[in-house]
Nucleic acid binder design. Structure first.
Length: 881
RNA sequence: GGGCGUUUAGCUCAAUUGGCAGAGCAUCCGGUUUACACCCGGAAGGUUAUAAGUUCGAGUCUUAUAGCGCCCACCA
């Protein structure tokens, strides 16, 4: 098999020109599509976590793109029908907020333009902005099947959402009703528990008196005095000797004068605050439960914008915080206040706007989630779905085992409108409810205004994108998917819900493996944010360094599940690695011609360095395979880099110049074939990390096949792994290091060629055959052999590795005293190592119980160290004489 | 209040079933060697947070303590 390589390789990798050219070529050839694999190929599918349709690429997107594209390219090279299905999310709240801001800037508002116009403007905004993020993903090299791109609000997915909703309704798992919800006053919508984030804040704890009928009062403390207006009871602990006699008495709500009962419940903590508890079932989740238990009224005192409503009496119309002040002042005037004190507590805020969320009574749609959760728990428990790293399984179980019904309705305009209709009955405008695809027959039906939580449609993503519930072809071939790669921050929001809904609607887990990555953080662990100004913009990096260094850095900076701290110097290093690979390719390119036969020559025709580097290569391939199998992609990347930069380039490639420039034709050919094979394997291994560079470089070495993107993934040739060869070579390289050290110590001009003399004998025989190693790596002229009985060369430094002893005649540079000192220092080092090894081998238990190869290794080490010590001692004695 | 993660060189991080603690950046010394100065050679830098334990052997496993971080939870 012969293959030509492109000639005239450019001096540097011009990523800016190459990236778009290769991307368009790959895509035009259909290589991003699973159909490019064999017809019977096993599918490998990743549903891309859909970014917000109007979003713009940030470093988190870059991380998931790098990881998922790596997985996809790897599986594609392994011959799988690899499908990476891209798409975007309509992102209800986020997008609506963007459009509302736009309207505000125009001096108008959502309410002013009205429902139809607002939706029109939002779609327009989506059309304008919608392509941005997917264009940016392409710049990173994302090899998605763009023909299958989906959007959560497109017709097919909307159909899936309606189907899912109606099915749940028919199964009795969707219900509508008044409940206490987390209400976002600014957005004027309900939000789910998950969308509320509590942060510790310094607030005021207000102590006051609750007058009790018949005289006296109960002291109560609260952080939200305005909720006094909605109190339905005052509770004390039944064992509280101070107050238990008041249970059953009537208390009077301050200012309003409303009468409420004093109740007893052991929920009350006697030690806390004032000892008695005000109960506001309409505005507090605990009190809601308490109220249910005691049959208390759920009074709502707030309007939708969190101003006070008519139940607040004289305070009607005030904002809740103004009311808090005014009420407290009025209570003070009435002699009902006791004191205030600073207090730290957790304040619930909306994950979106950051505003304080108010628990409020509201009629919403819910999913009865327990049956779905049970299946989702079982699927992970039974191993049908595996979470990497597995510690997140515990978090997953804990959440699902304590899950609350899911509030799925949102009072937004942008989203999937709930397929429900109402008709007036008995004076209630929503007295009759119908759920279905179309409005029912008859007059007077009005469609539900609310839309569904964005995560409802996202939960269907892995199968809705493949055509569910229609068009079963793709669904049959590519579902369930294999990999769900996403951030651990949306384990509950998204992953758990996909598993629940996937199992419920398709009876299959939507994916087999969940790989969770962490957050990308700045140096020192700070969160990346635009306001802090520490954000690394991935597109700027791509402009300046190319996509490959960014991808490589992101992948090699982290481990699964852990946040990674992105260090900008690593970007730089990756960029230089790209150049390194390019230069290695250039060297090979200029040393081979198109007539070279591909593949390796028989092992017998290969010299020791070639057999060594091929052994190392195959060990690397095996390691990389292992690391990919356990999803340790970062470590795999680092090992490939280390192999190329620390072994292949500085040693083998340098040594190969001997054979290439001075060898006979057979040696030249064997070396060329080895070089090409090595570089070919490295480029294949690196392709999933750095697709552009590797594809382009591959063109310049002889290769077989149309493109690297569809080339085969390397497999380790275990027969090529040779411990003996590696051991011998390691000793020679140790010798190289010693000679280089010695040269540096004696300040020998690096350009100066020096002589190297070894005493003849078995120890040096192999070395003499491989004198190219010393010639190329430490600039010696040749290895001269000294007869056994000859005297030591005068004025020579001596380096010793194992049983090999080399003299470096450095006339005029050697100071006998200095040389003796150097050798004595060496001897001390060897002595220390020897002591350690002797101690280990002297330990009977070690010899008996340690693994055989470990013991053997120590024995070899012992022999080498003893030999070296003998050589050096002899040499020191010689110097003295 | 529970749960999880983390603590390794000055900084950012690795270390595959327990087997001589490694990189990058920064520092110091020396180099225009015909693939690469986007480079090459050399050096220095660690009681692996602390304390016990298991083991022939612990960065790795167990327990406790401390710092940092995250998640979950109804003390007003």
């Amino acid at each position: 098999m012969q293959a030509a390589a492109e000639k005239n390789m450019p001096r540097n990798f011009d990523f800016a020109a190459v990236e778009p050219r290769l991307y368009d070529w790959w895509q035009a050839q259909g290589w991003f599509k699973p159909e490019c694999a064999a017809a019977d190929a096993e599918p490998y599918v990743i549903s891309m976590p859909p970014p917000n349709v109007t979003g713009s690429l940030h470093i988190g997107h870059a991380l998931f793109t790098a990881l998922e594209d790596l997985m996809i390219r790897y599986e594609r090279m392994r011959g799988k029908a690899a499908l990476w299905l891209p798409g975007t999310d309509h992102a209800g709240i986020a997008t609506q907020l963007q459009v509302e801001k736009m309207l505000r800037d125009e001096g108008t508002s959502r309410e002013a333009v009205g429902y139809e116009e607002f939706l029109h403007r939002t779609w327009q905004w989506k059309e304008e902005q919608g392509g941005t993020i997917t264009r940016q993903l392409r710049r990173l090299g994302a090899s998605c099947d763009w023909d299958r791109e989906r959007f959560t609000l497109d017709d097919g997915l909307s159909n899936a959402v309606i189907e899912a909703f109606i099915t749940l309704w028919e199964q009795g798992l969707v219900y509508r009703g008044p409940r206490l919800v987390n209400w976002s006053p600014g957005l004027q919508t309900a939000v789910s528990d998950l969308e509320v984030e509590s942060t510790e804040e310094e607030v005021t704890l207000y102590y006051f008196r609750y007058p009790v009928a018949g005289g006296g009062y109960l002291p109560v403390a609260t952080t939200r005095p305005e909720t006094i207006l909605g109190d339905a009871a005052v509770a004390v602990h039944p064992d509280d000797e101070r107050y238990r006699h008041l249970i059953g008495a009537r208390a009077t709500v301050p200012i309003l004068g409303r009468e409420i009962p004093v109740i007893g419940d052991d929920y009350v903590d006697m030690e806390f605050g004032a000892g008695a508890l005000k109960v506001t079932p309409g505005h507090d989740f605990n009190d809601y439960e308490l109220g249910r238990k005691h049959g208390l009224e759920r009074l709502n005192i707030l309007n939708k914008d969190a101003s006070m409503n008519s139940n607040a009496g004289p305070y009607e119309g005030l904002d809740r915080y103004d009311c808090r002040q005014r009420l407290w002042t009025d209570m003070g005037a009435a002699g009902l206040t006791i004191k205030t004190e600073p207090y730290v507590t957790r304040i619930p805020r909306s994950q979106r706007g950051g505003e304080v969320v108010e628990p409020m009574m509201s009629t919403q749609w819910y999913v009865r989630i327990q049956p779905l959760a049970d299946k989702a728990i079982a699927a992970v428990r039974e191993g049908q779905v595996k979470i990497v790293p597995d510690r997140f399984e515990k978090v997953y179980f804990h959440w699902l085992e304590n899950i609350q019904d899911w509030c799925i309705s949102r009072q937004l305009w942008w989203g999937h409108r709930i397929p429900a209709w109402y008709r007036e009955k008995d004076g209630d405008p929503q007295g009759e409810i119908y759920v279905g695809r179309e409005a029912p027959a008859g007059d007077g039906w009005a469609m539900e205004q609310d839309v569904l939580d964005t995560w409802f449609s996202s939960g269907l993503w892995p199968f809705s994108t493949l055509g569910w519930p229609e068009d079963r072809d793709d669904l049959a071939r590519y579902y369930p998917t294999q990999m769900m790669e996403t951030g651990h921050d949306i384990l509950f929001f998204w992953v758990a819900r996909m598993i629940m809904m996937g199992l419920w609607f398709t009876d299959k887990p939507p994916f087999h493996t969940v790989y969770l990555h962490g957050l990308v953080r700045a140096e020192g662990g700070a969160k990346f944010s635009k306001t802090l100004g520490n954000a690394i913009d991935p597109l700027t990096v791509v402009d300046e360094l190319g996509a490959d260094p960014l991808r490589f850095t992101l992948i090699t900076s982290g481990t699964p599940g852990n946040d990674c701290h992105l260090d900008e110097t690593r970007l730089d290093h990756s960029f230089r690695f790209v150049n390194k690979i390019w230069q290695m390719t250039a060297f090979i390119n200029m040393n081979v011609d198109g007539a070279l036969a591909l593949g390796l020559p028989p092992s017998g025709e290969l010299d020791l360095p070639s057999r060594w580097i091929l052994s190392r290569l195959n060990r690397l391939i095996g390691n990389v395979q292992y690391l990919f199998d356990i999803h340790q992609y970062g470590e795999a990347g680092n090992q490939i880099l280390a192999f190329m930069w620390d072994e292949f380039a500085p040693f083998y490639l340098e040594i190969s110049k001997g054979a290439l420039y001075e060898g006979d034709e057979a040696q030249q050919t064997a070396t060329r074939r080895a070089l090409v094979h090595l570089q070919d394997c490295c480029l294949r291994l690196l392709h999933p990390f750095m697709p552009f560079l590797t594809e382009e470089a591959w063109r310049y070495i002889p290769h077989e096949g149309e493109a690297l993107i569809i080339a085969d993934w390397p497999t380790a040739d275990v027969d090529a792994i040779d411990d003996d060869v590696e051991g011998r070579m390691a000793a020679y390289l140790e010798l190289v290091r010693e000679i280089r050290n010695t040269r540096a110590e004696f300040k020998v001009d690096p350009g100066r060629r020096i002589r190297a003399i070894a005493r003849a004998g078995a120890a040096t025989e192999g070395l003499a055959e491989n004198e190219q190693i010393l010639k190329r790596l430490c600039n010696v002229e040749a290895l001269e052999l000294l007869p056994l009985e000859a005297e030591d060369p005068p004025n020579a430094a001596n380096v010793v590795v194992g049983d090999m002893s080399i003299y470096l005649p450095l006339e005029g540079m050697i100071d006998i005293a200095a040389e003796r000192q150097r050798l004595t220092d060496d001897l001390a080092k060897i002595g220390a190592q020897l002591a350690r090894t002797e101690k280990m081998l002297g330990n009977k238990k070690f010899v008996e119980r340690a693994r055989a190869d470990v013991v053997q290794r120590e024995r070899v080490r012992l022999a080498d160290l003893q030999a070296a010590r003998a050589q050096i001692e002899e040499r020191i004695a010689g110097l003295s004489g």
